[in-house]
Design a protein around this nucleic acid. Structure first.
Lengths: 203, 203
DNA sequence: GTCTATAATTAGATAGAC
DNA sequence: GTCTATCTAATTATAGAC
């Protein structure tokens, strides 16, 4: 699994695989742009230049296609790794940069697809929650090893979600048009503060 | 407009108004929970115990109903006012508290409805963007009166959106279950830093 | 593998009786 | 104002020919 770009090997493949990949690629794009409910199977089929029936032939159901689409085919995980290797020093900056660079590159990343779909689709909501718990909260909390580790990780999650929504979904200025460097400059220290700065533990 | 709770005055009203209010109330609840695309007119009608046709009789179209539903009937605006009276001192805390207190009270606030709907509905996306520009960015930027005012306002918007999404939509722990006081303790200073703290202006 | 045809369901919306 | 009945269009999904 996870062959990005299988470019029409001349010796001729069993030829169906190419269609399947085109469908997947298109699905990721449209789910990323309009979310699960805002995307129809027909729209995907049309954009991928195949018959709608073919989509069901390959993926069974719309949910099946969505599941296949978010199966992060190399998109995020390696990038996420690089965040955690290197310790807490400068991690705020790395988190912001990695997030933005990957999301800028393509709006078909699992995080965007899930963030777009979660608000109107309960399945996606659960998937996104699990995704964040597993990929971010879990690792962060383990790494921080402090009594308020969970809260700190939660604060980082708020930054990530807020940044993703403001820049890619609602497109609020100047967040939407700022360069990665600019945002790293302003949000890097902010995230770092969530990780290692002072925290008010009231009471 | 904007009578919350018109509780069945006995002398008998012209009786249609009551239904209209029930529809509106129900619409706000469902749009707030499932977003524009995740909510059907029929579902609203059923929950409001009226006929679907009646919804169209009163509001014309689904969009018309949505528009009427988000017309913030006293929900947020007065609360927003109180944020800005009092100056920059402690404003971070006031922003977080006001946001959470209002959103905790009911998930039928315009902000929640729009935030849920924007990802799958372009109309809602535009409305949310305008709403934020008008109610938050505009006032904040005017108040800050600094060269990087726009960026600072944007950073606050990221906090607001991130908090709203994490707590009310994706429901990430421990953000979702934390008390208002706890979150004010951790996010208040963070927001304050966005407003009045040091900012890296690179280059 | 790919397409045609179509079933089954559901959504938004309208006409018109009462 | 309220409801019945209905229309139209779109959606997910399947059966079956090629």
């Amino acid at each position: 699994m996870a062959e990005e770009d299988v470019p029409h090997r001349p010796g001729r493949w069993r030829s169906g695989a190419e269609s399947k990949q085109r469908i997947l690629r298109t699905a990721r794009e449209l789910f990323g742009r309009h979310g699960y409910r805002g995307t129809t199977v027909r729209a995907i089929a049309t954009a991928a230049e195949v018959d709608p029936a073919m989509v069901f032939y390959f993926f069974g159901t719309k949910q099946g296609l969505f599941a296949a689409a978010i199966e992060m085919s190399g998109a995020v995980p390696p990038a996420i790794e690089s965040i955690f290797t290197g310790g807490l020093d400068g991690m705020g900056d790395r988190i912001v940069r990695t997030l933005l660079e990957n999301l800028d590159k393509s709006d078909r990343t699992p995080l965007v697809m899930l963030t777009r779909s979660a608000p109107t689709d309960e399945q996606s909501e659960a998937l996104l929650r699990e995704f964040i718990d597993r990929e971010i909260t879990g690792r962060l909390a383990a790494m921080l090893d402090a009594p308020d580790a969970a809260l700190r990780a939660g604060m980082v999650n708020v930054q990530i979600l807020g940044l993703a929504v403001a820049r890619y979904i609602v497109r609020i200025e100047p967040i939407a048009s700022a360069s990665v460097d600019e945002l790293a400059g302003s949000f890097g220290p902010l995230v770092q503060r969530c990780l290692t700065g002072r925290t008010a533990l009231p009471g």
